[in-house]
């Protein structure tokens, strides 16, 4: 699990999101991409949003940055970042925050850096935009950060173009770029998915150590439970636009409660274990369409435990224990060990 905590649970959250929804107009109607998602993250804490593609985790992060496509509509009862309500800011004010106090790292470092500008220009640009100061100051900051992230020849690297660097190096550059202004919150959307496995570990370790050093809050978006286990203090499991289970990563991994979370965990191979226990799980069925009105539980058509009420009842989040909640009509005991198969 995630080892020692690097955050203080009594600190006020850097970001507090309550009932965040994103609706997207599509030809067939309204797509409810994100549905009343709530979470918060503290300085130094890592929150992981987990789920399969299309579950709304990336849209959630773009919503926080207010970088949603034009056809999307954002609503929330609260998106408080460092005491400011993000939903109430003008586009100009929001732009002043982006890259400055909230940094964002994207999935594909091959395409996320502009191919026609030198790495140095791209790093300095963000500093010059938000911190002012001169080019020399920006260059010094860039060199300092490159050394920090373990790049051997920073001065020379800064004069190179993105296509001259490997994938792992480019992602390091992205990270350095987003650290230029010393943000309070970093949102990393699948930061290692496009990288080689060996490089993935390095990038994650780097993110962790930087987070500790700069005491940043980190929202880590991933579909990879291995990454979550390594990194996260808290987890929010998303399915079909909703959070279906959330809690400390220790709780969620030790006592997965929602059938979807349990299914996800069964999908992880455990090499070296005996053959009978090594049966790799899969979750049958497909994610339901999110266009139009959504009634009942969104997971019911893939769930072994589904019964009549699942199609109609309002399913809210409820507590398993303090700080650990899940979205299901059935009590936690139903899913206790040994009762995994459908009764």
């Amino acid at each position: 699990m995630s080892g020692a905590h690097h955050y203080n649970p009594d600190d006020p959250p850097v970001l507090e999101v309550e009932d965040l929804s994103v609706d997207i107009k599509v030809p067939a109607g309204t797509l409810h991409a994100v549905n009343k998602v709530s979470f918060s993250v503290r300085p130094g804490e890592t929150l992981s949003l987990v789920g399969e593609s299309g579950c709304g985790k990336s849209i959630t992060s773009l919503a926080i940055m207010r970088l949603l496509p034009k056809a999307a509509r954002l609503s929330a009862s609260k998106i408080i970042f460092d005491g400011q309500d993000l939903a109430a800011l003008s586009e100009k004010q929001m732009a002043r925050l982006r890259g400055n106090r909230i940094g964002m790292i994207f999935q594909d470092p091959m395409t996320s850096l502009n191919p026609v500008y030198r790495i140095g220009d791209q790093l300095e640009e963000i500093y010059l935009r938000h911190k002012g100061g001169g080019r020399r100051e920006a260059r010094e900051r860039a060199e300092y950060l490159l050394e920090k992230i373990g790049i051997i020849n920073p001065t020379q690297r800064l004069t190179q173009f993105p296509h001259q660097l490997s994938g792992g190096l480019r992602q390091r550059m992205m990270i350095a770029m987003m650290l230029m202004c010393d943000p309070k919150l970093i949102i990393a959307d699948e930061p290692t998915t496009a990288l080689d496995v060996t490089v993935q570990v390095q990038i994650l370790q780097l993110l962790r150590s930087l987070q500790e050093e700069f005491r940043m809050a980190l929202i880590l978006i991933t579909h990879n439970l291995g990454v979550v286990a390594r990194m996260a203090d808290h987890v929010a499991v998303m399915y079909a636009g909703q959070v279906v289970e959330k809690g400390s990563s220790a709780d969620v991994f030790r006592h997965p409660t929602h059938p979807y979370t349990r299914g996800l965990l069964e999908c992880i191979p455990h090499p070296g274990q005996s053959a009978t226990r090594n049966k790799l799980g899969s979750i049958p069925g497909i994610v339901p369409s999110l266009v139009g009105r959504i009634d009942g539980c969104t997971f019911r058509n893939r769930c072994n435990y589904a019964f009549g009420d699942c199609a109609t009842a309002q399913v809210g989040l409820r507590d398993v224990e303090d700080g650990h909640s899940y979205r299901c009509l059935l009590p936690p005991e139903t899913f206790a060990a040994g009762k995994l198969e459908k009764a």
Binding site: M65, L67, A95, R96, L97, R98, G99, N100, G103, M104, F106, D108, T111, S112, L113, N114, P115, V116, Y117, E125, I126, R129, H130, M174, M177
Partner: peptide
């Protein structure tokens, strides 16, 4: 629609910079 233009927006650059520096040159 490219990733690097999204990056430019995420950097908080002004719309003019995003459009004419990052997008148009490509």
């Amino acid at each position: 629609n490219s990733d690097y233009v999204r990056t430019a927006r995420a950097k908080g650059l002004s719309p003019g910079k995003v459009l004419f520096k990052h997008a148009l040159r490509n």
